[in-house]
Design a protein around this nucleic acid. Structure first.
Lengths: 334, 334
DNA sequence: CTGAAAGCGCTTACAG
DNA sequence: CTGAAAGCGCTTACAG
């Protein structure tokens, strides 16, 4: 139905092979022939059939990506970075979503392997604990890179951020600014929220600072937890100097609660958080926070998998890369 | 290298065709044979090669989606809806991003056609004005559905929201609540922002209400425009009863500016907007707004394209579907 | 510089 | 119920 190489060949009275080669700019073919073939291809609206090409060639230049949730800016921003590099390097991306379900994750892996992707980039679901399915990928020698979340088992390449270190860094910074009375409203402690809380506690301990129990609120990554969290702290009596929030959404709730109490940020109380830029910068006054360069993560993850693919036969040591996070000084810290 | 059907056939001493059919649950094959084949396939870790399958079958059960920007919640939420339906109907999605570039859009279309997708779902870039590339798609009889943004030319199926109607509806509602002094801070007037502004003006006109020129602020879809917009309105003298914001981000800036003036929402002034749920509900007090059911849009768009694909040969009339938007009454309107 | 031959892994009629 | 034959569109050696 569609125009194919043999149609071009027929029209020109040459063999299909010549067409293939001309289209590939093979040195085998004369320049005039190439020009002629390409022109006819253009005229006939020829579009190559990648399916057929992939069946022959070992490489598809296609990468499979598995994400827990596409509507989460953290992930979508990572994907954006991946797409930039993929495009530059002429790779395609097939994006799938696991919705935090382990079974969906496995299904996606099978689907992507079926599609003959050259490699896999996966951000695991929160409850992926066994390596089983990934062992199968490894057995097939399919390059695989984990990104964006800590990996529960070893023996795989990965790239991501370290929430513990980020929180420690932010806490150290607060301390260096002379703050000692610091409260923490965490996100979900079963995931990143927990690591951030631990990082905070660790830094406090290292600096021999006391942590008021009323000032540790275990919440979730939503504004209402920040709002209620601050009110709990407020009602507990003494006010801390700083509220360290698990992320920007929590900070937003905290902002609202603080304003309701007619307090001023940062004059009366400071607020800081760990988050990615876009959100944090939307608050007034602008939040001082630790930025996770998500787009960079996406770029680097893509570069890593491409490198793994293109050096497939050489012996490759496993890499576990932790990217730097950045402290952004804005107006919410006195 | 990987296990293929012929390996299974060899192991069982039967022909490859029997394997294919058994795996497809063809009525041709005896139940015992099916069980045997499937078991061996499982044992050998057989994964079908979709590339090969697609070359033979006319259908790939793969759909191509083109989005202007993946980090925009409006779009990612639509995609989420699409994925739900696709999964239910056993279709795959290949997601590509145009980054609002017309050339990238064309490239993506070619890429997806090359990959033999069964259909195309596209949300055009803001400056796509000619139908040229889409005419080519049509000529190939490849089903195509536009979604999420108004289409500049006719003759194509589409599904989306009507910003003009949504803004009109919200304005009518304000008027029905006895509001007459309404200001509008718009988003980018070259796109949806403009339609929303027009809808607002239209409703005001229909109701013979005067529109104070100082109360029409043409901004962009970011908080700072809301913040500055409100300050302009504030400094202009009389205060309106309601600020109608082009979207939730603008509303956020307006909230901040209002609080800074020590005014109360909704006691001193009301704020409303047109946006999609997640963002609008994050503000305190919760925003009264027009919700665009983006996920539903994604679901419906997917259903529509699948229907087009599966009824390809029957004559199909062109559909241009406008989905309803919903007024959500919260606490920001007195 | 050009082309004939073989094959990628799977599927679809068609014959037995 | 099982299998031999032909083909999907393209590419890769290999021969001329």
């Amino acid at each position: 139905m569609n125009v194919k190489q043999s149609d071009i060949a027929a029209k020109l009275g040459i063999s299909r092979v010549t067409v293939t080669k001309a289209l590939q700019d093979s040195p085998d073919i004369s320049t005039e022939m190439k020009v002629k073939v390409k022109q006819i291809a253009e005229e006939m609206d020829y579009i190559p059939n990648l399916t057929a090409r992939h069946l022959t060639a070992k490489k598809t230049r296609t990468l499979g990506v598995i994400l827990p949730d596409i509507t989460n800016m953290y992930f979508s921003s990572i994907v954006r970075g991946m797409m930039e590099v993929a495009e530059r390097e002429s790779y395609h991306i097939i994006l799938t979503v696991s919705r935090e379900e382990k079974t969906k994750e496995s299904e996606n892996i099978f689907k992507l392997l079926s599609m003959n992707v050259d490699g896999l980039l996966v951000c695991q679901t929160l409850d992926t604990v066994e390596a089983e399915i990934f062992e199968k990928v490894k057995k097939r020698k399919k390059p695989l890179v984990f990104f964006g979340r800590p990996v529960g088992f070893s023996g795989y390449d990965s790239i991501g951020f370290d929430d513990f270190l980020a929180a420690e860094k932010l806490t150290e910074y607060l301390i260096s600014k002379g703050k000692t009375k610091i409260a923490h409203i965490s996100g979900d402690i079963k995931s990143d929220g927990g690591y951030r809380l631990d990082g905070f506690l660790s830094a406090m301990k290292k600096n021999k600072l006391e942590v008021n129990e009323d000032w540790i609120i275990k919440g979730k990554f939503f504004p209402e937890y920040g709002y209620e969290g601050f009110n709990k702290i407020f009602n507990a009596g003494t006010l801390p100097e700083v509220i360290f929030c698990g992320n920007g959404m929590i900070a937003q709730g905290v902002y609202d609660a603080i304003r309701e109490k007619e307090l001023k940020i940062p004059e009366d109380i400071s607020v800081v958080a760990v988050d990615h830029k876009k959100f944090a910068e939307m608050l007034y006054p602008k939040l001082t926070y630790i930025d996770y360069p998500t787009r960079t993560l996406g770029c680097e993850a893509m570069k890593l998998i491409i490198q793994k693919i293109e050096s497939k036969n050489k012996k490759n040591k496993i890499e576990n890369i932790i990217l730097d996070t950045f402290l952004i000084e804005n107006d919410s810290l006195a």
